[in-house]
Design a binder for these strands. Structure first.
Ligand code: MN
Ligand code: MN
Ligand code: ZN
Ligand code: ZN
Lengths: 143, 143
DNA sequence: ATGTTTATTGTAATGATAACAAATCTTTAA
DNA sequence: TTAAAGATTTGTTATCATTACAATAAACAT
């Protein structure tokens, strides 16, 4: 997957004005190496074994800080779960209603807010909801 | 705004296979006459004076039923609040970070999920986040 | 070294939604 | 008409993600 070094991670944090603590490096690394749009809880559960003293509050604090510093973006694709993405460039997402995975779609151009509306858009989210290929196959198998 | 009659409301509910109780008519009417993408709580607070015995659980149940019967759609534009829309046709939304209003944008064509992805999209949400004209004016005034 | 700022932690609070079971209304059919 | 069955509504309680808060610990500066 991603082959970013710890060096680069630390650099990126410093550039954004975020002092690179162990915990922050761990969270940012996880996001860089796992492009699965994880929730705060998923990140916490995944890091816990390696960082036994890590607190869930720290994960929340860290993610909020990263979002404020524009290091990551929030993907609010479904209510009740905030997901996070290291890729801050515009791209669309697809959520499968069966496996609940969120898939990146990079080939869709960013829709533009019509200028005559006088609305100034600062970010755009394009979300598709449906069923992925694998899950479709499994469902057809059953019937 | 909308000038739909109670007759039409009842008809629409029956057509969808929903028996038109007082509460369901009230909720559906509210959505038809107030295109403000309200949350369950906003609907409950708004109807309470006229329907003093109305329960919040009924509002939640009713909205869930309406969504299942495709009478309304969910607008998950921000985490922590589900909003509802009687307009089930595709259209984009704009949320202002100052006044928190959600504005309809009808002139943007529905983006399509690329066919080569093998993903079958059943619905699409296009959300813009930024600042509306009014709020922009107010902020400039202050500085 | 010592005081000051920053980061982390654990616990408690919040707030939206769902689960549940009792109560009431509506429909069915004897 | 009436009584059982089914559907709907209601109030209370539980759940779960997130935030608030205050205490501890670490990093930094004098
Ligand atoms: Mn993504
Ligand atoms: Mn709308
Ligand atoms: Zn799937
Ligand atoms: Zn505004």
């Amino acid at each position: 997957m991603a082959d970013i070094t710890k060096q680069k991670i630390v650099e990126q944090l410093k550039e954004a004005g975020v002092s690179p603590s162990e915990q922050r490096i761990a969270v940012f690394s996880f996001l860089h190496h796992n492009h699965i749009h994880p929730t705060a809880d998923t990140i916490y559960q995944s890091l816990s074994p390696d960082y036994p003293t890590l607190s869930k509050t720290t994960v929340y604090n860290t993610l909020k800080l990263f979002v404020a510093k524009r290091l990551i973006q929030v993907v609010a694709i479904e209510d009740g779960e905030l997901r996070f993405d290291v890729n801050t460039d515009f791209h669309a997402h697809f959520k499968c209603r069966e496996c609940l995975e969120v898939i990146d779609l990079f080939d869709i151009p960013e829709p533009q807010c019509p200028t005559e509306t006088q609305l100034i858009a600062e970010s755009t989210q394009l979300n598709f909801y449906g069923i992925c290929d694998q899950c479709k196959g499994k469902l057809e198998e059953q019937s």
